[in-house]
């Protein structure tokens, strides 16, 4: 039974993340412009577009890693109130980032501590929120490693000795251990070969469904967006040119650029 089904209806009907008219400029250069977006609990939103279209800038603004030039990002806290991300103190924002949020980087080395063991990587967030019992931390770490299909005997190995796919799975476990409500993913399958990609996508779909996660996934890979997301945004030159249900956008693209994107998919 998915967590979404257990939530009262009113909870799922109110957006978890509310973005209005967000713009970010790097000096005179445009990052992204005038993006509005709501993310509801349990929903996966994909942001697609070619590289340089402003996807990652948008994601970083949503996750509080960049301060937008204009516009607002609001997040519904556990008490049900919608609060502006940039009205929070840095301490509150960082607490949010390690409890209610996850951030999966394209390059696992950015999201992991490469010099400490896999178990400590998973346990770090628990220790950061005050867990001081080694036994329970380790048991939780083992449980999460099993969920992301990493063998239990690798728990004391450093991620340096892991393959790319394992590292990515470990990064996901590290992020999900505190049961976040919202996960940001930047090209989660980038740089992985196709079979590994397929397994990772499978895993992500399962976790998202099991935990009732909301997620914002940035990807240039339309297949990833189709498999993972409920809705999608298509970005070009920093603006959102089309958005809608994933199946609708991919099966019936309206904008010429989206049509080009969809028709560019390699057919094997």
């Amino acid at each position: 039974m998915s967590a979404v089904a257990m939530l009262p209806d009113a909870e799922t009907e109110r957006p978890l993340l509310k973005v209005s008219r967000l713009s970010h400029y790097y000096g005179a250069r445009l990052g992204c412009r005038d993006v509005s977006l709501d993310v509801y609990p349990g929903e996966v939103v994909a942001v697609v577009g070619e590289s340089g279209s402003g996807k990652t800038t948008l994601l970083n603004c949503l996750a509080g890693r960049l301060t937008p030039t204009a516009g607002s990002v609001e997040f519904r806290m556990r008490d049900g109130r919608l609060r502006s991300l940039f009205g929070l103190t840095e301490a509150e924002r960082r607490l949010l980032a390690r409890t209610d949020w996850g951030f999966v980087h394209q390059n696992p080395a950015e999201g992991l501590r490469m010099t400490v063991s896999a178990g400590a990587n998973v346990g770090e967030r628990l220790m950061a929120i005050g867990d001081r019992h080694y036994g329970t931390i380790r048991a939780t770490a083992l449980d999460w490693l099993a969920r992301v299909e990493i063998a239990a005997d690798r728990i004391d190995d450093e991620p340096r000795s892991f393959s790319g796919g394992m590292r990515q799975r470990l990064q996901i476990a590290r992020n999900l251990v505190t049961r976040p409500r919202l996960v940001f993913m930047d090209e989660p399958t980038g740089g992985l070969d196709v079979s590994v990609q397929a397994r990772l996508l499978d895993l992500l779909r399962q976790l998202v469904a099991d935990l009732g996660l909301a997620a914002v996934v940035v990807t240039h890979d339309l297949a990833v967006a189709r498999l993972l997301s409920d809705r999608m945004l298509v970005m070009k030159d920093g603006t959102v040119i089309e958005h809608g249900l994933t199946d609708r956008v991919l099966d019936d693209p309206r904008e010429p650029y989206t049509q080009l994107l969809v028709s560019s998919i390699l057919q094997v």
Partner: peptide, 18 residues
């Protein structure tokens, strides 16, 4: 400054694990 000291316990965790 933000009293984020989870990292320090990561080191102790590593000790026990090893």
């Amino acid at each position: 400054g933000l009293e984020e000291y989870g990292l320090m316990h990561v080191k102790l965790y590593e000790d026990i694990a090893r």
